[in-house]
Design a protein around this nucleic acid. Structure first.
Lengths: 105, 105
DNA sequence: GCATAAGTACGATCGCCGTCAAACTTTGAT
DNA sequence: ATCAAAGTTTGACGGCGATCGTACTTATGC
């Protein structure tokens, strides 16, 4: 497995790429689950209804958009929401999507 | 032409539909131009690099997502940003996209 | 009435994106 | 050493959406 995956600086990511990442319901669900958990989660512990290979794809898109940071712990790949950095680069965006109001709708 | 086009209540629109509308750069540009103008604009006065039929399609998507309200004035179709209603339904979302910071990136 | 302006409606095309299965890799446990 | 667990990689497939041109509709102005 690739030792440490590539992570962009959030300053290198543009709004377009972030929105393309967040428009997919599976990926947005990953983000909200991470936000709700308040801790890093391994890929396998998300509640998403897709195959493993599809999940890998979604995590990659989120990582390349600067939304999550990934690192290995044994065989497990952990996922961390890059909240502070995203809030700094795109103020209010994640807030607008992780509100209970937003998740309900 | 259809006299008065259909407009959903914002309460009938879900976040998924709004994001799908806003993820397209042409449509997001329409929204930011409306926001910057601070007044209603006719379809023809937007700075977008697509054909008229494509433009019609984009305005329809924005209208059905509850983002704009359309009405006729003569042969011109006017477009109004439904700011207050969207802010009420999805707090902070439009703010996050119309910030100068967001537009620059 | 006629021409022009401003959009709309309708197909058709084309590329991208989400999806999966299958084969593979790496790590940890027995 | 083997085996299982957890992801990754690759290739293929299918559907949806952005785009355009053409033909059509409606209103305004002369």
């Amino acid at each position: 497995m690739g030792r440490t995956p590539l992570h962009p600086e959030v300053s290198q990511v543009d709004l377009q790429q972030v929105l393309e990442a967040l428009v997919d319901p599976v990926r947005r669900s990953i983000v909200t689950q991470l936000d709700a958990a308040g801790e890093d989660l391994k890929c396998g512990s998300f509640d998403i209804a897709v195959s493993k290979s599809t999940a890998t794809h979604h995590f990659k898109v989120l990582r390349e958009a600067g939304l999550i940071r990934q690192y290995y712990v044994g065989t497990a790949r952990m996922n961390a929401l890059r909240r502070a950095e995203m809030d700094d680069a795109f103020p209010g965006l994640l807030d607008a999507l992780t509100t209970r109001q937003a998740k309900g709708r």
